[in-house]
Design a protein around this nucleic acid. Structure first.
Length: 492
RNA sequence: GCGGAAGUAGCUCAAUUGGUAGAGCGAUAGCCUUCCAAGCUAUAGGUUGCGGGUUCGACCCUCGUCUUCCGCUCCA
């Protein structure tokens, strides 16, 4: 009868989602029309935080690495892009319905289940043959034979017990739409399911115009779209999401070295931001995607467990080679560096690629869930109180500084306004003179503002103000001219 | 997609056997002038998720639907 008690973590996740909505970080999309499943909008503070995370990433990639440049490719791409990338063929699942029970299954799962039961019965060889047959038919898109396989193997629906199946259909995870003016047979175009291909098709444009030499990287942030069958867990898995990707082009044979380099470099990016190292771990892929010779996830401990936050993939020369085949345009690079083994230049080759790909929305959720705390505090008189505080790293906090005159008369607002005007051109500030000072501090805690400055009567005498620190709740008196310096020092 | 639970003001919750919706907090404006959510006054805010049905009458009963959460499933 009673619903199962929530674990502290689940409870905390609920609280984070509520907090995100109540304080203007994340709203359900089109909420007045009951929302749209797995689509969310970012509010005033959420959009600032998201932008700051994106900027921090962009800065670390394109400014801190002299050999990485950025691009901003269109979401729409030529349809052949997705044939070359393999998404048209493999980014889809073969589905089948049982006509009696109306249940829908993935065909490969049905067959794998059958193979498992064969193994359990000791018929290992038969099971292996079945799987091999399935892989062959899937690979050749031979759905009729695949369906016949279901019948031959007497695979039935677990609900109805019958094998009264519909025909097999492909469910593609890419969204498609129409583009008016292209040829009849190609007028379906897709919303990109990943941003990477925009980089690959521009490989030579970028290499030539920016005069890049291997090894070099191309960085990009932008929206991607996947028609997930089930999308859940707040902004963790959305149908429309934003990626921050960097493709690093290297000399063939050196990919392992760079894979290891980026594995460490990317983890460092997280910890340098102030995220706790113990909430991260690597997860090596056992089953590799069609394009990779090595792959791992950087997982983060979200309130619902360790989940993928970022991927590091060694994509080999798969993508560029495929684009070369499909476009009939050479995608090779001429390397003038001398190969010590031969004494001659390395010459023409298609570079290998190391990809780092992080979900911006997932990073947002990682930051938010890590920052959220319902903190018990003991007041000076010994009584206890609670505050909700977001310990967002100062660098990416939506608002850096709140400027609060203690009272709204006696000339204090004038001094506060002057400070506001001198700071707001350099970082995001918030001015407020309403309500008791304690209440204003709490409101800033709730949105993660790292610094509050209060102007009081003493400020008029000696030009000092109190600066109050979010995490420790301590404050100190400093000259008003030092405020900007302190904030800039913390967010640089 | 399947199973379970839930939807009343921005939030947390009330509302008798079915009798036409209230409070606290929050918000806004004002007073007070105060260093960690103080106090006082006023104001705004709801076709009870949406659509049918039963009824003289529905937040309440019933059917459908949407959304969210939990479990399974899915996530190259």
């Amino acid at each position: 009868m009673s619903k199962p008690a929530l674990t502290p973590q689940e409870n905390n996740f609920q609280a984070i989602i509520s907090h995100a909505k109540e304080y203007g970080f994340v709203f359900p999309s089109s909420e007045i029309y009951d929302g749209l499943s797995a689509v969310y909008d970012y509010g005033p503070y959420g959009s600032e935080l998201k932008k700051n995370i994106r900027d921090y990433w962009w800065h670390s990639m394109t400014q801190m690495h002299e050999n990485i440049v950025g691009i901003d490719a269109a979401i729409f791409m030529h349809p052949t892009t997705w044939k070359a990338s393999g998404h048209v063929d493999s980014f889809s699942d073969p589905l089948i319905d049982n006509k009696d029970s109306q249940k829908r299954y993935r065909v490969d799962h049905l067959i794998e289940a059958k193979a498992d039961s064969l193994r359990a019965a000791g018929s290992t060889a038969e099971a292996d043959a079945l799987i091999a047959k399935m892989d062959e038919l899937l690979g050749s898109d031979n759905f009729e034979a695949l369906q016949q396989l279901l019948v031959d193997q007497k695979i039935t629906c677990s609900v109805s017990g019958t094998s009264n199946w519909t025909s097999i259909r492909q469910f593609n995870l890419m969204f498609d739409t129409q583009l008016g003016s292209v040829a009849e047979d190609a007028n379906t175009i897709y919303l990109r399911p990943e941003t990477a291909q925009g980089i690959f098709v521009n490989f030579l444009n970028v290499q030539k115009t920016a005069r890049m030499k291997v090894p070099f990287g191309i960085a990009q942030t932008g929206k991607a779209f996947r028609n997930e069958i089930v999308a859940r867990q707040f902004i963790f898995r959305m149908r429309e999401f934003e990626q921050m990707e960097m493709q690093f082009f290297v000399r063939p044979g050196t990919q392992k070295k760079w894979y290891d380099y980026w594995k460490e470099a990317r983890l460092n990016w997280h910890t340098e931001l102030g995220m706790p190292a113990n909430k991260y771990r690597f997860h090596d892929h056992v089953k590799l995607a069609h394009y990779a010779d090595a792959a791992l996830d950087i997982e983060f401990e979200f309130p619902f467990g360790f989940k993928e936050l970022e991927g590091i993939h060694s994509r080999t020369d798969f993508d560029l080679t495929r684009h070369q085949e499909f476009s009939k345009k050479k995608q090779q690079y001429f390397d003038n560096d001398i190969d010590e083994a031969t004494g001659k230049p390395y010459g023409n080759y298609i570079p290998y690629v190391i990809e780092t790909s992080i979900g911006l929305d997932r990073m947002f959720l990682a930051v938010l869930s890590n920052a959220y705390e319902e903190e018990k505090i003991t007041k000076e008189d010994g009584s206890t109180d609670e505050r909700v505080v977001l310990h967002i790293p100062a660098k990416i906090a939506p608002v850096k500084l709140a400027i609060l005159p203690l009272v709204k008369k006696d000339g204090l607002p004038e001094i506060a306004r002057e400070l506001m005007d001198s700071c707001k051109g350099q970082f995001k500030c918030f001015y407020e003179e309403k309500d008791a000072i304690g209440k204003r501090y709490r409101r800033q805690d709730a949105i993660g503002t790292p610094f509050c400055v209060t102007i009081d009567h003493q400020s008029k005498e000696d030009q000092t103000v109190t600066i109050r620190y979010r995490d420790a709740m301590t404050q100190e008196r400093v000259h008003i001219s030092k405020v900007k310096e302190i904030v800039l020092g913390a967010i640089a």
